[in-house]
Design a binder for these strands. Structure first.
Length: 259
DNA sequence: ATGCCGTGGAAACCACGA
C-alpha cells in the first residue's frame, strides 16, 4: 500500500499537476494540504474521474486538507484537532482506510517568530502531540503525515545558518518535533535514509530548485506496527520541476499489508 | 539578508506562505 502526502499550494490552481502526479505515480492514498479552496470549490469530480474518492476540509483562501483513496473506502474519524473550539483553521483531517488510521495535517508556519503566529504554531503542535499520544495509546496502526513546517535537524536544510531564527527551525519547534517522535513514532524517511540529503520543499525564487536549496519539512510518522511493515519511502522530486507546480514535492511510503 | 514567486480574493492591491 502506497501512501503519499503532497502540499499542493492551491488545489484548483494545481489541478493539472495533481492529476498528472496521481496518474503517473498511482498512490493508493494521497493526503493533500494547502487546498486554498472553500468546501464547495474542491474539485471532487475531476478527482473522482481520476479514480479517487475523497474527503476534505476546505477553507476560503487558506489552509485546507484532504484525503484521497483509490478503490478504497474512506471512513472519516476526525476533522480538526481537539483542544480548542475557537480554532477555525482547516489543518487536520483523519480517516481509517484499510484498517490504518491516517492523520493528514498542515502544521502552522509560525513566522514571524516571536509573535502571535509562532505562539499559535506551538499551541497547535501541543494539541497535535496530545492527540498523537491518544492515537499511539490505542495500539492501532497509525500514520501521521503532512506538512509539519518543521526542519528537524541541520541535515534537513541546505544552509542551516540561514534558518536559525526561522519558525521552522527554532529550538522550540525542533524540540516539539523531538517530543512528538519521543512518544515512539518513526520518521519513515530518516529510518530508511538516516544520512542522505533529502528535501521536500524548494522556494520559487532564487532558483532554489535548480540549486537544490531545499528543506525537508513534509514528514511521515509511523506507529510501531507500521514501522515493521515499511518497505520503501521517497520523494517525487521531479514533480517540483513541472510547469505551474507547487513549491513542495510529494513524499510517499510503501507499506507491506500482506499479513 | 531579502517574499525576488505564486496563490486566492478583493479590488487594481493585499495577506499569506517558508
Amino acid at each position: 500500500m502506497k501512501i503519499a502526502t503532497y502540499n499542493v499550494n492551491g488545489v484548483n490552481g494545481r489541478l493539472p499537476v495533481l492529476l498528472r502526479w496521481l496518474n503517473e505515480t498511482q498512490p493508493d492514498v494521497a493526503c493533500l494540504q494547502e487546498l486554498k479552496a472553500p468546501q464547495e470549490k474542491f474539485p471532487e469530480q475531476a478527482i473522482r474521474e481520476a479514480g479517487y474518492r475523497a474527503i476534505w476540509h476546505g477553507q476560503k483562501s487558506w489552509n485546507g486538507v484532504a484525503i484521497l483513496a483509490r478503490e478504497r473506502e474512506i471512513l472519516e474519524t476526525r476533522r480538526g484537532l481537539p483542544g480548542d473550539e475557537e480554532d477555525i483553521q482547516s489543518r487536520y483531517i483523519e480517516a481509517e482506510i484499510d484498517g490504518i488510521t491516517i492523520g493528514c495535517l498542515y502544521l502552522p508556519n509560525g513566522n514571524p517568530a516571536p509573535g502571535p503566529k509562532f505562539e499559535y504554531k506551538l499551541r497547535w503542535f501541543q494539541r497535535l502531540t496530545d492527540h498523537a499520544a491518544e492515537l499511539y495509546k490505542s495500539g492501532k496502526p497509525v500514520v501521521l503525515t503532512g506538512d509539519y513546517n518543521v526542519i528537524p535537524t541541520e541535515f534537513d536544510v541546505y544552509k542551516p545558518e540561514r534558518w536559525v531564527k526561522d519558525a521552522l527551525f527554532l529550538p522550540e519547534t525542533r524540540m516539539a518535533f523531538k517530543t512528538l517522535l519521543g512518544q515512539g513514532w518513526t520518521d519513515a524517511i530518516r529510518k530508511l535514509y538516516p544520512e542522505e540529503k533529502i528535501y521536500t520543499f524548494w522556494d520559487y525564487f532564487r532558483n532554489a530548485y535548480a540549486r537544490d536549496a531545499g528543506l525537508r519539512i513534509d514528514h511521515f510518522l509511523l506507529s510501531p506496527s507500521l514501522e515493521k511493515r515499511l518497505l520503501a519511502a521517497g520523494v517525487d522530486r521531479e514533480v517540483r520541476g513541472w510547469e505551474k507546480t507547487s513549491d513542495h514535492a510529494p513524499v510517499w511510503v510503501k507499506l507491506d499489508m500482506s499479513q
